[in-house]
Design a protein around this nucleic acid. Sequence first.
DNA 1: CTACAACTTTGAGTGCGCTCTAAGTCAAGA
DNA 2: TCTTGACTTAGAGCGCACTCAAAGTTGTAG
Lengths: 122, 122
Amino acid sequence: MRIGELAAVSGLSVHTIRYYERIGLMPVASRNGSGHRSYAPQTLAWIEFLGRLKTTGMPISEMLRYAELRERGVDSEAERQALLMMHRKAVRARVAELMECLDVLDAKIAGYGEHPTIKAQQ
Amino acid sequence: MRIGELAAVSGLSVHTIRYYERIGLMPVASRNGSGHRSYAPQTLAWIEFLGRLKTTGMPISEMLRYAELRERGVDSEAERQALLMMHRKAVRARVAELMECLDVLDAKIAGYGEHPTIKAQQ
DNA sequence: CTACAACTTTGAGTGCGCTCTAAGTCAAGA
DNA sequence: TCTTGACTTAGAGCGCACTCAAAGTTGTAG
């Protein structure tokens, strides 16, 4: 799989894939005869997982930490698991925070269109 | 209330408060005799609401739209309500997205430390 | 009166995560 | 052979949301 195809199936841009490789988020890709990057199909799964980390607000610096542990192989699994557990905790907190904000939004939305006396209390 | 005190109680920096005024997120503050900004206590409630919008991922451009409607007064309430309803929808979607990612994280975390055969399926 | 903190302005700088440009190489179809 | 398009590199540029710097003014405590 060449970089253009990987970009198409992953939704990342070619630029972004090369950027991810440059900063260490993706392993240095092997090359075909003409120097073009060549990707194994599993690469897509890695990109998708990175996407989950990104969606959940993990900064690149921390993804990088995870990627480095992954490169180190099987003996880093406990550390990777710990890192993900910390992140899960942060995501759960974020969800709770958003739900609290949703309550505030609900109240504000309900407030519009009410009796002026009640409205004034907003 | 002067800007330093407002910064202390709101958690924003003095720089940020002036920045918010400059871009239109906050009304131009009235001044005391010596040209210093003077704030009414209700200003804090506005900053806190802006904080909710920010926490829930609303970009400044959209907060600006809301702030402008607010400046326009009572006749913009329907529009403000509509804007907040759109935003609430987006926040709900974001919560759903995060919860989906939490499932993926749970599976990944559970996968570490399992039997090698099962682990290989990750 | 002096020192010092808190304020004022304009405008530049920062960190993040891309995103694009320029200049060049390579492979395949008309 | 020519053209087209996908690829390569190094490095510059961008949008967002601040954040800070410089130079100056004002208010108050000792």
